[in-house]
Nucleic acid binder design. Structure first.
Lengths: 229, 229
DNA sequence: ACAAAAGTGTTTCGGCTACACCCATGC
DNA sequence: GCATGGGTGTAGCCGAAACACTTTTGT
């Protein structure tokens, strides 16, 4: 433990992760079945304590690795929840993260082993404490991000069709997009690369697979989806 | 002190505030001259410890009240900085806030009494620890916010001209805006109300003063400034 | 033949930009 | 009269949206 010259109150600090995934045309969320009090047996976000000598980001990565076996996961800070009464088990300040992971790459056994489960985003159960509010915040942040940056690299498989990307966007924004306009908009960004392979399972005619360009550091764009309609 | 059933590491948690103000056609920042180690004598953000039984928001409000005498200040979370080595005095997790205050309404004596000072945003001195990075983050957040929401209510005096608002926006975005187009865009939002008074000090002809509409709960708009040019 | 997704083209509309241009007034 | 900011008008461009239409192929 680091010695500190400060003489002031200290607090339990936790991280809670909203983990987004995409599978079977649905936006999903990885939730944990609590095995300890308080609220044992209910569903909650995946979380953990922040240890000495680690950043809150490292703590979140540790939690993710523990539950999914994955490293180098996309993580972003969402918000801090600090109501002294938010956790009946004691005063805990929680730093909330959202993560995006590729369901096809993670360790399914590790997930079940920990009592976690993937839930369709729009069918998730009520969560403990203020976790529903956290999910709400993370969803807003995800929408904001997806509105000015092409996301999907961390959610979709390495090759995917424009249809799959559109369905992902429709799941995130919970609205539909015109197929023709969506395709033109997305491809005009020059962020995707067309592969020579076609998908023939989702359509009769077959659709080209695309992947994110390697070189493309900045997947930034002016605007992909207009918010605040 | 609240009793806790948890047996895990605890941490010092602080808040640091980036306090924006507007005066003499300039975007300003309230900084503090450190009177204690480490880095005594250097400039830093205004900060304080999070106490038992208060939210991080309350802690930030407390700091603001202490330095400016103001309550009900606009506050927004920016980011959490948690590098174990960020503060040489010990391991401190810092929650960063940005605030907007009306310089004309605050308690100037209280500010000097605490060794704080208003600095022009683009002429601020280098700050201690990771505080420069925090300011950077807050500035980005301010730009984002100002891009889809008309800000100024918490920075400008209660009545102001379109010119003053434009100068504020130019200070925030560090670019110029076409006077005619800016005026039309802003007024088309129907968020401002024209008063019957004119300002005759800044121009010969005199310009109408405006104020934010009272009823107007949502000052949201599609987009005011296009980001990511 | 029909359905269903793939992919392209076209038209319309509205907002943003870049100006030009008049107004009012102090110097 | 001239400079300065106040304020209005307008033409051109470009992207978003709506939607028509053709292609391909499995059933």
């Amino acid at each position: 433990m680091t010695t500190s010259q400060y003489k002031f109150p200290t607090h339990h600090v936790a991280v809670d992760c909203i983990i987004f995934g995409y599978e079977n045309e649905k936006l999903k969320l990885l939730l944990s079945h609590r095995r300890f009090e308080p609220e044992q047996g209910k569903w909650s976000l995946l979380g953990g304590w922040v240890e000495e000598n680690e950043t809150v980001e490292k703590a979140a990565e540790r939690v993710l690795l523990q539950y999914t076996g994955l490293k180098d996961i996309y993580l972003e800070q969402v918000h801090v929840f600090s109501d002294p009464a938010r956790d009946p088990g004691g005063r805990v300040i929680s730093i909330v993260f959202f993560a995006m992971i590729r369901i096809d790459k993670h360790d399914k056994e590790l997930v079940t082993e920990h009592g976690a489960k993937w839930w369709a985003f729009n069918k998730k159960p009520a969560l403990v404490f203020d976790h529903d509010q956290m999910v709400e915040h993370a969803h807003e942040k995800l929408k904001l991000k997806a509105s000015y940056e092409l996301i999907g690299k961390n959610l979709l498989p390495s090759k995917f069709t424009v249809l799959q990307l559109r369905i992902l966007y429709e799941a995130i924004f919970q609205r539909s997009f015109d197929p023709g306009n969506f395709r033109k908009k997305i491809l005009s960004l020059k962020i995707l690369e067309r592969l020579d392979v076609k998908n023939t399972t989702d359509s009769k005619r077959g659709a080209y697979y695309y992947s994110f360009r390697k070189e493309n550091g900045l997947s930034f764009s002016e605007r992909i989806v207009k918010l605040h309609s």
